[in-house]
Design a protein around this nucleic acid. Structure first.
Lengths: 150, 150
DNA sequence: CTTCTATCTTGACGTTCTTCGATTCACGGC
DNA sequence: GCCGTGAATCGAAGAACGTCAAGATAGAAG
């Protein structure tokens, strides 16, 4: 197998430095589309359980014949979900004899975890920490009048 | 505002111990549905950029009047996406005067990052590290009988 | 070569999502 | 009390998604 997957997760070199994180800088359109593809692949309970079953396996590989009977779904449906996960770069497939084995791509999940991780938190509890300099730099003129409205 | 959000991210107490991670254990159906809701909220480029814009703001709050003109989309559409993000527990809204301000819920993204983080990696480089004991422990009987099927 | 098993692909159907225009609600100013 | 502005809701059109039945493909066994 191993057709062309979308290189959305960029498992090549220089992965860590290209992605400063979703929560740090305002994410341009291209990167948003790339990340949305991966997150959309995770946005389904069946695919989430498939990925969990594959990732939690000790040997790192699961046969399709083990995944199908766990889901009350037809085999083509499972195959379709596996294809979406593979196109998102989250899993990889390998044919061995009659059976096809799927394994996790750790770089993909590592990258997603890094994208969702905040770099550093100046506020201690991260709640109710809202300094008043908001009106000075960011939210432009409406925030400047926010203190006088009521 | 602050209607009821779906408690999918569980920002109450005992959050960290209830979720051993997506990649560790095989995820039951209920938790898969909960997580899928949050990931589905992230599975759209517009919502991803909205979240990024909100999270990367210094003061932690962004007015809707700043988000709308950044997207070439109608204002009801932005409002709809913000509602989905809020229902997923990723952001929270607060009305101040005429304007409504959105801020990130850090517990939500922290939890997602934890869910996507692998607990311990026996392989050092995590790539091309696949020992031959795969057939012995993991993939159960189909792999064991791979040499003599029927 | 034939047959069988395991998996993927194709085509179709119903559901859900994204987007918009029009309307409605909330709040402040007059 | 009335009007203007900012934001949410409602209803609808179009696209995308999830699911399955049927057929096609790859490999092993006889």
């Amino acid at each position: 197998m191993s057709k062309q997957e979308l290189p959305v997760v960029g498992q090549g070199a220089g992965v860590a430095d290209c992605c400063p994180g979703l929560l740090t800088a305002p994410l341009d359109g291209d990167r948003a589309a790339e990340l949305a593809t991966v997150f959309k692949a995770l946005g389904d309970p069946v695919r989430l359980r498939l990925l969990s079953l594959i990732a939690s396996r000790a040997g790192g590989e699961v046969c399709v014949c083990e995944l199908t009977p766990a889901f009350d779904l037809a085999q083509p449906t499972i195959s379709h979900h596996l294809k979406l996960l593979r196109q998102a770069g989250l899993i990889a497939s390998e044919r061995r004899g009659t059976w096809v084995y799927y394994r996790l791509v750790p770089e993909a999940t590592d990258r997603l975890a890094a994208v969702l991780t905040r770099p550093a938190e100046p506020g201690p509890t991260a709640a109710a920490a809202r300094p008043a300099d908001t009106a000075g730099s960011g939210p432009a003129e409406p925030a400047a009048t926010a203190g006088a409205v009521s």
